[in-house]
Design a binder for these strands. Structure first.
Lengths: 244, 244
DNA sequence: AAAAATATAGCGAGCGCTCGAAATATTTAT
DNA sequence: ATAAATATTTCGAGCGCTCGCTATATTTTT
């Protein structure tokens, strides 16, 4: 019961509320692409898609997408080469699917989380926490986005760039609103947004470091919040960095 | 004359003072490994090593080290497969050489730059600027360090990890000294060091973004300095963020 | 029995790497 | 000084292997 209660705040609450699995993301993909997919039955397709995606994320985080062979991928998935090519017409399509579905999911959830919050300070806090929590929940996806961008074909190169700028834009829009309302003191909004983004990214790029030091995502989130606020918040209330 | 004068401060001055070329780094490598290298004459070996290293950095920043074929590497270098294997016994040895020599060079220059500065605030400033300037000067090397770590064999995996922690340690040691002397107000030194490192890293990981926005390394350095100091410096002098 | 899904053997291409010969530079002999 | 002998460096075609991918046979579902 104590454990359940603890999960009602911070990352635990976030995880419970969004309840997002790889299968969910694959189901979206299946339903959006029913027409063109060779495999017709959802009950068969979705678990198999999830198996391929999970195996891809696992193997390519170990050796990189390029170095991952499709034979290894199939044996990790428990399926065959033939099955793989019934779902994806090429290795590149597999890569593109993971990129597109992942980015779209992240974008959707981020928007859902902050849309209803108006005041700049709480909005900034939720944006920061949501990004960190999402990257914790979908750690392998985030790592994949960053590391495998260079393997994308030209037509898809813009997706991760847009995604990077989209997230940064969320931050800078909040900073602008906060400055206009007089609650933030920000000299250079563009660069402030960039370094906030860098801090958020470090959480999934250096996971080995933080998990070795036993830093939790909630600790990191609180720290980053405090660090940013001490640099940009005009007047701090006595408990400015805390929430009830 | 005006251009020369401008180079006396910031990155221009740094570049002039350290005057570091790829050939210099290759010369170090040649002299340290004279005994085991097949090619004996320095005047022959050093330019050819530099040609291979330059070509490797260029091609692998475009497609990744793994995807770079040795045939492409040779034609980019203007030398043959046979020549390549007279200098490196395997593709992996080429990778290891670039990692080791690069990291050692960075470590050496960083130490040279800060060793003589005692007071925490100026020491922190020089550490931050030196790291940013070095990553600007050796941009391809830094990018290579980060992106190609996963391709290293297990025996060399510890090198980039040590290097990451070494740089972070330089920062956290300064923070600790500054706190002890009462000039810094830092609650969590470990995490503060980690996010400072993240900001330094962003400069070479997102070069496309900053060059597109026409942000210079000196502008970025000044901003990061100011951002960090507004979060950790106890009392700021009226011109606390500026230098004469 | 027909349709849908999966399994497997095999293809051409491109990979890292090797090796004997060719080219070049240096030393020795006359 | 010149030629011969030797040492050093460079070359590139070819080897074995694994890759992404496919054609076809087999199994499972309806």
């Amino acid at each position: 019961m104590a454990a359940t209660a603890e999960q009602r705040v911070g990352f635990g609450a976030f995880r419970a509320e969004v309840s997002l699995t790889v299968e969910d993301i694959c189901r979206d993909y299946f339903r959006e692409n029913r027409a063109t997919l060779k495999i017709k039955k959802e009950a068969v397709a979705v678990p198999n898609l999830a198996a391929f995606v999970n195996a891809t994320l696992k193997l390519s985080s170990a050796v990189g997408f390029d170095a991952m062979s499709l034979r290894d991928l199939c044996s990790e998935s428990g399926l065959s080469m033939g099955a793989l090519y019934a779902y994806f017409s090429s290795k590149d399509e597999l890569l593109t699917m993971i990129q597109r579905q992942g980015q779209a999911t992240v974008k959707r959830i981020l928007a859902e989380r902050i849309d209803h919050i108006r005041d700049p300070l709480p909005r900034l806090r939720v944006a920061i926490r949501s990004h960190l929590y999402l990257s914790e929940l979908l750690h392998q996806w985030f790592y994949f986005f960053f590391m495998e961008t260079k393997n994308l074909k030209k037509q898809n190169r813009t997706i991760p760039i847009e995604s990077e700028l989209y997230t940064e834009r969320i931050i800078t829009d909040i900073l602008t609103a906060g400055r206009d309302e007089g609650v933030f003191s920000v000299e250079n909004i563009e660069l402030t947004g960039a370094v906030i983004k860098a801090m958020l990214q470090d959480w999934y790029l250096k996971r080995w470091k933080y998990s070795q030091r036993k830093v939790t995502v909630d600790e990191y989130a609180s720290f980053v919040e405090g660090f940013i606020e001490s640099a940009i918040v005009r007047e701090r209330a006595p408990n400015g960095g805390e929430r009830p």
